[in-house]
C-alpha cells in the first residue's frame, strides 16, 4: 500500500518535471540545412558541371517557397553513391547540425509496415543513411527483455489476437520454436 503511494507520487513528480523543466529550458533551435546553403557558391559549381536547376527546383513554386525544394536534390551530390558533382563532401554533419536528420516523406505514412517493399527493391538506398546493419538487426534479430523496442510490455498478454490477425508479421522475426519455448513449456519465464 505504502509502496503504491510512493509510486504514484514518483509518477506525478516525473510528469510535473516534464512540464516545469520544459517550460524553463528554451532551447536554441538548430539551423535548418537550407539556412546553411550558399546558393551563389553552389550555382557556380552546377554551371561548370551542367547540373540543371530542376535537380533541386523540381517544382516551379520552389523558386518562391523553399519548402517546395526537392530536399533529396542535395543527395544527388552529397551522401550519394555516385555523386553528380565529384568531390562533393559526403560528411552528413556539414548540413545536419546536431545530428538531426529529417525523415524522408516516404517514412511518414505506414513506414514500419511498408518498409519491406522499399528495402527489397534497393537495400543500398537504405544504407545511405542507415550505414550500420545493426540498425536493421536491432528490430529484426535482437533479443532483449528489458527494452520495449518492438513490443510493449502489455503485448505478451494479447499477442495471440495479433498473431491470428497477421501471423506473417510474427514470421518476419520469429520461428515456431520461439512460440514453443513458452507454449510447449520449454523456456525460462522472462516474464
Amino acid at each position: 500500500m505504502r509502496q503504491q503511494k510512493y509510486l504514484k507520487l514518483l509518477l506525478l513528480f516525473t510528469v510535473l518535471c516534464f512540464f516545469m523543466a520544459g517550460g524553463i529550458t528554451a532551447k536554441e533551435k538548430s539551423k535548418h540545412p537550407f539556412d546553411l546553403f550558399d546558393h551563389e557558391m553552389h550555382t557556380g559549381f552546377f554551371e561548370s558541371e551542367n547540373i540543371p536547376c530542376e535537380t533541386c527546383h523540381a517544382d516551379p513554386e520552389s523558386f518562391e517557397k523553399r519548402e517546395k525544394i526537392n530536399r533529396l536534390g542535395c543527395h544527388k551530390c552529397h551522401n550519394s553513391q555516385e555523386p553528380l558533382m565529384p568531390g562533393a563532401t559526403q560528411e552528413c554533419k556539414v548540413c545536419h547540425l546536431g545530428g538531426k536528420f529529417p525523415k524522408p516523406e516516404s517514412h511518414k505514412a505506414g513506414w514500419i509496415a511498408k518498409h519491406e517493399s522499399y528495402a527489397k527493391q534497393n537495400s543500398k538506398e537504405c544504407t545511405q543513411c542507415h550505414s550500420n546493419a545493426m540498425f536493421c538487426i536491432d528490430c529484426h534479430k535482437r533479443r532483449d527483455t528489458i527494452q520495449q523496442r518492438m513490443h510493449g510490455r502489455n503485448f505478451q498478454f494479447y499477442h495471440s489476437i495479433e498473431a491470428r490477425a497477421n501471423p506473417r508479421k510474427c514470421d518476419a522475426c520469429h520461428r515456431v520454436e520461439y512460440c514453443q519455448q513458452c507454449h510447449a513449456g520449454r523456456g525460462n519465464s522472462k516474464k
Binding site: G152, N154, Y158, S160, I161, E162, A163, R164, A165
Partner: peptide, 13 residues
C-alpha cells in the same frame, strides 16, 4: 484496436 478470430482488444498509449 485489434480484432481477429483470437479475440479483440482496445488500448490507449
Amino acid at each position: 484496436y485489434e480484432r481477429s478470430f483470437g479475440g479483440h482488444l482496445n488500448g490507449a498509449k
